[in-house]
């Protein structure tokens, strides 16, 4: 009855191959991490690009200040504050302003009876 075993130790070639496989593992991990970092960096670029899209569009517009919008002047003069441009007029307040949180039920109440109040 005899026992057979492998020779201990390794040859130069075996050592190199063993080390190489570890090195490759490290490199693959690094490449994968780099890939991840690149995706991470690129993933939000579109936000800045869309923002820039709006700024560029703004620059191309003939009118760039809200109070210079002729249709805004018109709606105040003809409808919201007849005869002038007066923001937060009564009508503007009714149509364009709101309330929050616990004040909402009262606001709904008022809005539901608004027409009757005006008719009376």
């Amino acid at each position: 009855m005899s026992i057979f075993k492998e020779k201990e130790g390794f040859t130069r070639r075996q050592f190199l191959k063993g080390s190489a496989i570890l090195a490759v593992t490290v490199v693959v991990t690094g490449v994968f991490a780099k890939f991840g970092v690149d995706i991470y960096k690129a993933s939000d670029d579109y936000i800045a690009e869309r923002v820039q899209g709006l700024y560029t569009l703004d620059e191309s517009m003939a009118i760039r200040r809200s109070h210079n919008n002729p249709e805004i002047a018109q709606i105040y003069q003809e409808f919201l504050s007849p005869g002038g441009v007066n923001p937060v007029s009564e009508k503007a307040h009714h149509l364009l302003h709101t309330r929050y949180g616990k004040d909402i039920p009262a606001l709904i109440e008022e809005l539901e009876h608004h027409d009757e109040d005006h008719a009376a």
Binding site: G9, F10, T11, Q14, K17, G18, L22
Partner: peptide, 17 residues
């Protein structure tokens, strides 16, 4: 295992490659 048995691991890699 690999760190403790680097020689054996290297032989294994050599064999399978």
């Amino acid at each position: 295992y690999i760190l403790l048995n680097f020689e054996r691991f290297s032989r294994f890699i050599d064999t399978i490659s």
